[in-house]
């Protein structure tokens, strides 16, 4: 940390070098060396940037916005030219631009392997995960925006609170009617039933589906594809039992539930985990109808 004044720093350095008999250089030398190193880096970077002319590059047009920084309060697009290599993803390109050109470029990302669901973005007009979208599959220049229909916090970061609220509204947790008494005995589940819920359990909460859905855009209370899929995951799991299933159907049948879906398939098209969201919603509609007939 650079919280201390330089005088102290130099003294401590010297003390340390003496007491540890280490080959530490005194502060002045160190700083000179550091300046030189920095200069070398600058030269290297200039060389790298100059060589961009010779190699293949891609153009990024990236949405920028920051509510509190002058010049960024009005949304704008910044252009970045990044070197292209085979296998490079949208996320790789963003990281390159951030680390080399502008450290304030802001986006969520973590696992780099399409499982944390942090980096759903609007790339060339479509919801995609940055980490699993190859640059080679996109037309240049590549336009990168935050997910539509969500409030932008900054640059490519959107507010996910509403999405999380909708997920939690469907009571997204396993809640069996009864469990084996023995704490070492598992519930049985057929392979077929596991297969039935398998795709629905793959959801990574990225929000791409919700952002692509016209209905969700117009009806803020609509549960949305991800949350309904979550309800499907439990309603179809034979381990939970009939009582719980009834409760789950009641939740998804509400005014802003499954009946809002107009089967446009946009959610299914953008889902990075290939979950057949629209099918799941339709199946729940059928379950709900069957269920209502039963009590009629």
């Amino acid at each position: 940390m650079s919280t201390q004044i330089e005088q102290q720093e130099t003294e401590t350095e010297a003390d340390e070098a003496e007491s540890e008999q280490a080959v530490e250089s005194p502060g002045d030398q160190r700083r000179a060396a550091k300046r030189q190193r920095q200069a070398e880096r600058d030269v290297q970077r200039e060389a790298e940037e100059a060589s961009l002319d010779d190699e293949e590059t891609v153009e990024l047009k990236v949405f920028r916005y920051d509510p509190e920084v002058e010049g960024k309060q009005e949304p704008r697009f910044d252009d970045f030219t990044v070197p292209f290599h085979k296998g490079m993803t949208v996320l790789d390109a963003l990281i390159y631009a951030r680390d080399r050109y502008d450290s304030s470029l802001t986006f969520r990302h973590s696992c780099r392997q399409a499982v944390c669901g942090s980096d759903a973005l609007f790339v060339n007009g479509r919801q995609r995960l940055g980490c699993k979208t190859q640059l080679s599959d996109l037309d240049d220049p590549i336009r990168i925006e935050p997910l539509p229909h969500q409030e932008v916090v900054k640059d490519l970061v959107v507010d996910m609170e509403h999405f999380y609220d909708q997920m939690e509204a469907v009571e997204p947790y396993f809640d069996a009617d009864e469990l084996p008494e023995d704490s070492l005995e598992e519930q049985r589940q057929t392979r077929e039933n596991r297969e039935k819920v398998k795709m629905s359990t793959r959801c990574i909460w990225c929000g791409a589906c919700m952002s692509s859905c016209n209905i969700a855009a117009g009806d803020n209370e609509y549960l949305g594809p991800a949350a309904i899929n979550k309800a499907y995951r439990f309603a179809m799991d034979e381990r939970e039992g009939e009582n719980r299933k009834q409760e789950r159907l009641r939740i998804i049948e509400q005014e802003h539930g499954v009946w809002r879906c107009q089967t446009q398939f946009s959610c299914t098209e953008v889902c990075p985990k290939d979950i057949p969201l629209t099918e799941h919603i339709q199946e729940l509609k059928r379950e709900a109808v069957k269920n209502n007939l039963k009590f009629w």
Binding site: Y173, F174, D175, A176, L179, P180, S183, L184, E185, E186, Q187, Q189, T190, R191, R194, V197, K198, T201, F234, D237, R239, E240
Partner: peptide
């Protein structure tokens, strides 16, 4: 087994 009782979708 606790995890299974919490609904973990184990392979079967």
């Amino acid at each position: 087994i606790q995890l299974e009782h919490w609904g973990m979708p184990f392979s079967r």
